[in-house]
Write a protein that binds this DNA or RNA. Structure first.
Lengths: 197, 197
DNA sequence: TCGAAGGTGAAACTGAGTGTCAGGTTAGCT
DNA sequence: AGCTAACCTGACACTCAGTTTCACCTTCGA
């Protein structure tokens, strides 16, 4: 019989440890720089063994980047929630509001994270890699939304990719401005850059 | 006095060795799979030391991906060569013809490369990383092309990013079709996906 | 209370990438 | 031709990432 995926006590403990490890890692990375810190340092600082750390995060990068994992699902869900008649671009733009909301909940924390990622090539690369995994899911969400005139997978992929580029570039500029510029305006400007032919 | 960067005998030899190493590496990767092959294997197969191999290619990935380095400069040059009055999208689309041409020169070889990259996450990531380095250069080329109404850096970045996504997605589909689909048509379709609002 | 499942730590291992050094080759200059 | 400086190469040692294995312990359900 297949076990239902209910949330057990263990899962809660696991999530708490995971969050704790991520926090310790983040602080250390900010203080010393990502490259300077070894996995041994992280484990020691968190009071666990190297093995345990690597069991929670497969790589050093993931200790930072996995914080953004939720974003993918969030956008996909937001996309599916858009009205069926809406055109792809509007739906994508509005779905990204779900991510923007996460940024507005904790601007300072988010800014520290985005800056760390932006300044660390390895994290930058891992971030792009993660995001690339969203493509199929988002393209599917986009496809299921549209009723009759189904676009090809290529067309949907292009739109998803472009929308995510807009998000990334807007966030980059927001980060470069130390959070002073308005993220919503930046994102709107990015989407507008796609429009005029 | 500053040395001029002219092409010496050494440079030619270096380029030849580099090409040879890349070829040996590629063959081995195709035969055994990228992950299975160690740098020691590559060095041994090529008849050089591990040190030498790593001096030519900083990483195992670069032995494959550095073949695509020329593309970036090629696109930038093509972009600068477009007429000044042309709109950004047309200029970008036409500039990518320079890359397509490289694909048409050796479809079989290119297909093998793109398939290897597509099937190997590490190579995929490295490829994206390399391409990301093109952004500033391409955005600058786009900016210098336009006469008076300068777009913001954000706008240009978005267009460059979207154009490169079109290229990547078109090439991906071309690769998935074993080269049977027409790359030009795929790229046109990708660009068209950006157009209608 | 027993037993299975799963979390943890210790340790060994492979492989990537860096740095250093000594020996050999080549290019340029006199 | 002969000398010197630059450079290429191979050998070696080293750090660190990530994998695997094993033994121990806790927890939870039967």
């Amino acid at each position: 019989m297949i076990e239902a995926a209910r949330t057990s006590t263990r899962d809660i403990a696991r999530a708490a440890v995971r969050a704790e490890l991520a926090q310790v890692a983040f602080d250390l990375f900010m203080r010393e720089g990502f490259e300077k810190v070894t996995i041994n340092d992280l484990a020691e600082a968190a009071g666990v063994s190297r093995s345990t750390f690597l069991r929670y995060f497969g790589t050093k990068e993931d200790a930072v980047v996995s914080a953004l994992d939720a974003q993918g699902d969030k956008v996909a869900a937001a996309l599916r929630a858009r009205p069926a008649g809406e055109d792809d671009w509007t739906a994508l733009r509005r779905a990204l509001d779900a991510v923007i909301e996460l940024y507005h909940q904790d601007p300072a924390g988010t800014l520290a994270t985005t800056r760390l990622i932006k300044d660390t090539p390895a994290l930058c690369a891992r971030h792009r890699e993660k995001q690339h995994c969203w493509w199929p899911e988002l393209a599917r969400a986009l496809a299921e939304r549209t009723p009759s005139p189904r676009s090809t997978e290529l067309v949907l992929s292009v739109r998803v990719a472009a929308a995510l580029d807009c998000l990334n570039i807007a966030v980059d500029h927001w980060t470069a401005s130390d959070g002073r510029l308005d993220l919503v305006e930046l994102l709107d400007e990015a989407f507008a850059a796609l429009a005029p032919r």
